[in-house]
Amino acid sequence: MPRSMIDSPELQALSRFLDVSASRTELITSNLANIDTPGYRTRDINFRQELERASGDGEFAYADFAPAVREVRGLASRPDGNNVSLEREGLLLAETQLRFQVGVQVLQAEYHRIVSAIKEGGS
């Protein structure tokens, strides 16, 4: 059976990559929003692990995909019990944003390839 170009494993993997990146950015914004909340603990997901889980064998179930959120260990707590580190979150926000951008660019290139094939190589 010829492999489908529109629904190739590469495209599926990319969409999962974007999903995990977006989930992670959401957690980072949540950490930043709670930077002054007493007792709030920094949360994060293990990017590699979640991406592997999302890209695991068989069908990917969107509805069931809820990344495992973990409390980040090893961060210094303030006296009010909050341990959000501005530096950590700022760097991660920039990093995750760039990762997302990479995913989008590759996805776009992939789609352009398909469009180019549809148009028989013409632009």
Partner: peptide, 28 residues
């Protein structure tokens, strides 16, 4: 007094058919 709050799951219906659930993110 600030308090962390679980995100209200408004787009649950949409998410059931596609897209990841927001995991554990909390607003303030």
């Amino acid at each position: 007094v600030f308090r962390a709050q679980r995100q209200p799951q408004f787009p649950v219906i949409m998410l059931a058919s596609g897209g990841a659930r927001s995991g554990g993110a909390e607003s303030v």
